[in-house]
Amino acid sequence: MNINSTAIPLEDENVDTDQIIPARFLKATSRDGFGKNLFRDWRYNNDDEAQPKMDFVLNNPAFNGKILVAGKNFGCGSSREHAAWALKDYGFDAVVSSFFADIFKNNALNNFLLPVQVSDDFLQQLFTTIHQNPASEIAIDLEQQSITNVATGDKAFFDINQYKKTCFINGYDDIDYLLSMKSEIEVFESTH
């Protein structure tokens, strides 16, 4: 599975899930439509779509793409899966950072949003490349577990749990697997 795309650079560190999707948008009871509220308070003045904050990167027409390149410790804070839904719904297929918060990482994987963890240096180079040329692409190859900064040719490898990788590639989710374990779980319970 490959994700090849231009990318949007979000250099802030410690981006928490309250920023990704503010709490007041968690009142929905379905999984759909969160994209329009992604980074809502960083995107708009006075919560008004007619007043975009032009210095926020999602509002900068120079940048677009299916990959979000983000500063260290992305997705910290609240466990709200709505953060992963919002990123996915907005159109991202992968987030690249030098560090992810644990719960966010799981939530992303469970929603087929690929978290790609790279070194600080590699991340800085990506930011530099994207700023120099917003049209430059990033190539992610999940099979190989590699990420390439196409403009410079720099390539790095990333970790992903083999089980999760298989799920991701085949579009399985954990529930299917767990349901298939039902009788073993019942045996476990009988002695637990």
Partner: peptide
């Protein structure tokens, strides 16, 4: 520990989660 909504569904469905030891 805290979990996401997909994991809430897993626990609903099977009382189990897929977990890596931290």
């Amino acid at each position: 520990f805290g979990i996401g909504t997909s994991e809430v569904e897993m626990v609903f469905a099977t009382q189990c989660l897929m977990q890596n030891k931290p």
